[in-house]
């Protein structure tokens, strides 16, 4: 079945990796991080890629989720699973409250507002030391126990994150190819035409903003339990930008693109360590170069390249050229 092909290939890769490279640092630690980033990038892509609403503050929702879990489990001794749900409730409420006024804005104004929101949250994380531990962060976050199974080792986390990623991909793919998903993409294509088809664009935008925040919050809670220590640094403006970069780098409006972008951006710093002092500079240069030469993203870039090669070797199934010219 066509629609299951993506998740199955993804699952196959994620199962094969630890079998091929057992006990490998890159697989158990770096890939796990990449998978977490992929979940976040997919959630941001719902908003940016499909609905066309830019957000430069996504890390805030990730952070609210992480801190909710951390605070509720350490200071209030709540069960981790309940804390995850509570974190999602808190994040969802905040997202719901700001969704309408923020999503009324467009383009650069929307970018600024989401950026501002992200910075406000990260300042609060630093300043409200009473709850958040301030710049020093919060430690001793308890382990996650799922139905009696304690998630302890790096490899356990690899399994948990991978499973959730596959689930998220499946859900998001279903959603995109449905009435709601089409409404979402329609408002990206033309807000006015979408309204004329009976779509309440304001409501759809708010809904996707909340959904996207909920997924980020969930990922944040997982992150808190995985790390057992969190500090505001992980949820700063820079991380928001990194997430946006993953989405754009992979290719907007493509779930697999978002995964690919997350993978590249997680591995790149690991590999650039060899440049030592020049690491930051090289990273910036690569980022610029990729966006200049593949503005539609790496995934689309590779896809097009593959298609071109395919056509070259398996000849001609082309669209009527004349009609292309008129359009």
């Amino acid at each position: 079945m066509n629609r299951l092909r993506g998740p199955i290939i993804l699952a196959a890769i994620l199962v094969a990796l630890p079998l091929l490279f057992p006990d490998n640092y890159f697989v158990t630690v770096v890939v796990t991080t990449a998978v977490l980033h992929a979940i976040l990038a997919i959630s941001l892509n719902l908003l940016m890629g499909y609905a066309g609403q830019i957000s430069l503050g996504h890390a805030a929702f990730f952070g609210i989720g992480a801190y909710s879990s951390a605070i509720l489990t350490t200071q209030h001794r709540l069960d981790p699973l309940l804390a995850i749900a509570a974190g999602m409730l808190i994040t969802g409420t905040i997202a719901f409250l700001i969704a309408r006024p923020i999503l009324r804005l467009k383009g650069h104004y929307l970018a600024m507002a989401t950026l501002g929101f992200g910075i406000i949250i990260s300042i609060i994380l630093v300043q409200a030391g009473h709850f958040t531990g301030g710049p020093d962060g919060l430690g001793d976050i308890p382990k996650l126990v799922i139905f009696g199974w304690a998630v302890e080792s790096d490899f356990h986390w690899y399994i948990v994150m991978s499973t959730i990623l596959i689930l998220v991909v499946w859900l998001v793919n279903n959603l995109i190819d449905s009435r709601s998903g089409r409404a979402l993409r329609a408002l990206h294509g033309s807000e006015i035409a979408a309204e004329m088809m009976g779509i309440n664009t304001t409501a759809v935008k708010s809904a996707i903003f909340v959904l996207s925040a909920l997924i980020a919050s969930f990922a944040g809670s997982l992150f808190a339990h995985q790390q057992s220590f969190i500090s505001p640094d992980s949820f700063s403006f820079f991380f928001s930008i990194e997430l946006v970069t993953m989405v754009v780098l992979g290719g907007l409006a493509s779930t697999y693109g978002a995964i690919f972008g997350a993978l590249v951006l997680t591995f790149l710093p690991e590999l650039l360590v060899v440049f030592e002092d020049y690491e930051v500079m090289v990273f910036g240069a690569i980022l610029m170069a990729m966006m200049i030469f593949m503005p539609q993203g790496l995934f689309v870039g590779f896809e097009k390249l593959a298609q071109r090669l395919y056509r070259k070797f398996f000849a001609s199934q082309t669209i009527d050229k004349e009609q292309r010219d008129v359009a």
Partner: peptide
Amino acid sequence: QIFFNMSVLENVLVGCH
């Protein structure tokens, strides 16, 4: 006002919303 990010069928499916 076309939804250029969607196929012809999907465009019309939006009409069925």
